[in-house]
Design a binder for these strands. Structure first.
Lengths: 233, 233
DNA sequence: CATCATAATTGTACCGGTACAATTAATCAA
DNA sequence: TTGATTAATTGTACCGGTACAATTATGATG
């Protein structure tokens, strides 16, 4: 684990464990340098990361302060870390409806940058939060990059498997979303009524070398889902 | 203007003007250093910024590549820069419905971290995109920070006025969103039907010193609005 | 001509430093 | 006590450097 990532995680835990509130001050840069025995630039990099995650903000001449608005129950649209924490914090379970190897749709092939004759793993599942349906999720994984998947891996954490099991490096993701009305089929899965609102999210995740490996389409139950993002100004 | 910001903007323009496609390679770090006559860390910082904006991705040992999926018409949820570009690129106009000084609601006071007896500027307006209604927007500005507003400033760019006119430094924003059904009143403004889907977005913008100055609630017309965000992994 | 080892390229982590801007604390005058 | 001035604190921009990991190019080998 990289030093600056480790420091960022430590600080985030520190904030959480000590239940620091918005505006509370963290130790100054110099002190953090001493504490972690690293150079200034390493601490700075850790703090930049926390700024992008929306955890702290820094004020020149004043200090480092806690941000975290802590509207609990909100799902972070920008960090997969956040999603993983959600899974733990709340009772999010999932049921796999379909799992097989197949040829990609034109749309999937385009987004995964692969040929129509190549193979993908197709996964369709429903996620539940505290007994209620949270979302309906369809994913396409490039099989030449993710050669094997099974029910257990999916139920645990696919991203964790890709990183630790396969030794691949996940780099970045593009997420597109819009609002629409539920189709009859979607409504059935989400236990809602046709025409009800939905949040539809498409995500394309890439390895650090830029190769897309996962194209996912998620339809959220509007009753159960609240999101947040950080504005970069 | 800071060097690294300038370099980031230059590179973004370069990509746009030369119509570089996804995967196209940019000059290597060393070359950018020579070209802009700055140190490595400055170029690196500029590239980090572009990575967070979702414009490029970097591959160790290989180079710097263009990302930009360019699904045109999508509004960036994370960068106000992006919103400003939208205003220019498309024909986004707005009509001010209300503009006055008043006391904040409890909700606004809480989010703006101010007393119920202090003053806010309240702005209610509808935005149009290519003739269609895009959204209904209610904003509260802390009057002790933004002492004066008028119709012209609002129609132009408030953020630009705050930065250049008032000399304040905008730092960061928190954005919360969920999906719901339109109320009768909202439907009237958006020229839709009660019960139709809406994307509801709350944003709180802060100065660099952490003080919130703007609390805005936006209700989007689901037909006209598509969004994207970058996942930070 | 394919394969494998090796070298060159290229970005990232991390160090340590100077200058400076914004804030806060200390000092002093009225 | 107040208000202005000065000094100390604290984070940010920018420089230049070393080491290294991942990729790509090279060249030797069969």
């Amino acid at each position: 684990m990289l030093k600056y990532q480790h420091i960022a995680d430590e600080l985030e835990n520190y904030i959480e464990e000590n239940k620091l509130q918005q505006g509370d001050k963290l130790p100054v840069l110099q002190e953090l340098m001493n504490q972690f025995k690293v150079s200034k630039s390493t601490v700075t990099k850790a703090l930049e990361l926390l700024e992008n995650r929306g955890v702290v903000f820094q004020v020149r001449g004043s200090g480092i302060f806690v941000r975290r608005h802590k509207r609990s129950g909100y799902i972070s649209l920008i960090s997969n870390q956040g999603f993983k924490k959600m899974l733990e914090e709340f009772h999010i379970t999932s049921k796999v409806i379909e799992l097989d190897v197949r040829k990609p749709t034109k749309e999937a092939a385009l987004n995964l940058n692969m040929g129509l004759d190549e193979d993908v793993y197709y996964v369709k599942r429903v996620r539940y939060i505290q007994g209620q349906t949270l979302c309906l999720e369809e994913s396409y994984f490039n099989k030449s990059l993710i050669p094997y998947l099974n029910n257990e891996i999916i139920t645990e954490s696919i991203f964790n498997y890709i990183t630790n099991g396969l030794g691949l490096n996940i780099g970045f993701g593009d997420t597109f979303l819009h609002v629409d009305k539920l189709t009859a089929e979607e409504a059935k899965y989400l236990e809602l009524t046709e025409g009800d609102p939905k949040l539809y999210v498409e995500s394309i995740y890439h390895l650090t070398n830029g190769q897309p490996f996962d194209f996912s389409k998620i339809t959220y139950n509007y009753v159960q889902s609240q999101f947040f993002v950080q504005a970069v100004l």
